[in-house]
Design a binder for these strands. Structure first.
Lengths: 187, 187
DNA sequence: TCTTGCTATGCAACGAGTTGCATAGCAAGG
DNA sequence: CCTTGCTATGCAACTCGTTGCATAGCAAGA
């Protein structure tokens, strides 16, 4: 269960409240992990009672007060342990692939709209990632001899993965659309 | 919940027992959907009581008897309904990406072995997919004017997606390894 | 004032997925 | 004969994830 660890990493990058974490999980962390605010609040409560995180009440003006969480020693140790353990390559779940194989027993051409919708979602995400890259990682070269900023470099590497994934998906969906078009032409 | 539908598609492609389905979910269906035998038996039981599938006791020799499931009318109708409904683009969960961003707060170079392990798993899968493609889809050209075999063509399209995914992952993991190597060199 | 909307946290119930265990037929080898 | 191993099915307990709902502070605009 890596949700714990995803939250710990996010809190190490920047302490924050459950609400803030939930929004990060819709943005940058969300590129590779999703979670609802329910899950986040529940895990934060458990990690607090296990001493993995510290809480601080932060009064705010113009909006409700919040609880700001930050990683405590045991939380950091737990993350370190997990980082040194091997994990299994993730298992995939692509509903769309089920639909594509299932379409053989229905009307293949009827899937064109749906696949197009997904293609649009992926081009949107790609543009969003590229905009984030241009904003957050403008100078890709890096000054020669300068010490590397691990946090930055590794965030960029993960973002490049997201970009590669979206590009691959768009190319594949084009391939699928071309295949479906052949069925429509035949009909 | 698409596990129901993944099972229906697999049973339409070829009727079979829970055990056989479980093995398919480790192979071809497993390219895009995973399930344990527990889940499969439970869902089959529910679909049977809902009239979505028919069961037939098949006595065997040299091994225990089995129950062969096949899709019934209502199951096919349920699949068709689902196929015509829009679905949300899938949400991702990449433990490895959590580890990569987390490594910034530990020892980045310590991740090299783990990333290499994942790279090997992906090259293995890629070779497995390519072997399957060479075996099951030898003539990619297709006879001009011949009617298209929807089941075959769409299975191939999904397989091409799996191949594209593995190639993308390998290239990205090489990128990550190069990034991690820079940290090791600095150390 | 009343509604809408964003911030902020949380409970309760349910459904999906995982893990450990149990049973049983039969084959093959030591 | 006994163990190992594959086929074949299943229960029970648990954890994880989703959904619907509830509360509350405060701001802005109709």
């Amino acid at each position: 269960m890596a949700l714990d660890h995803a939250i710990l990493v996010s809190l190490l990058e920047k302490p924050g409240s459950g609400y803030e974490l939930a929004r990060r999980f819709e943005r940058s962390i969300g590129y590779f992990w999703t979670a609802t605010h329910q899950q986040i609040y529940r895990v934060l409560k458990r990690m607090e009672s296990d001493g993995w995180v510290d809480v601080r009440d932060v009064p705010q003006q113009g909006r409700p007060d919040k609880k700001e969480y930050s990683v405590a020693g045991p939380g950091r140790a737990a993350l370190s342990t997990w980082l040194h353990e091997p994990i299994e390559p993730e298992s995939v779940r692509h509903d769309l692939a089920v639909k594509i194989r299932g379409a053989a027993f229905d009307d293949p051409a009827a899937l064109i709209g749906e696949v197009g919708r997904h293609r649009r979602a992926h081009t949107d995400r790609l543009e969003h990632y590229l905009a984030g890259e241009a904003r957050d990682f403008p100078g890709t070269a890096g000054t020669a001899g300068a010490p590397l900023d691990a946090e930055r470099e590794l965030q960029h590497a993960v973002l490049r993965g997201g970009i590669a994934y979206e590009r691959m998906m768009i190319a594949w969906l084009d391939d699928v659309l071309a295949t479906l078009a052949r069925f429509e032409a035949e009909r």
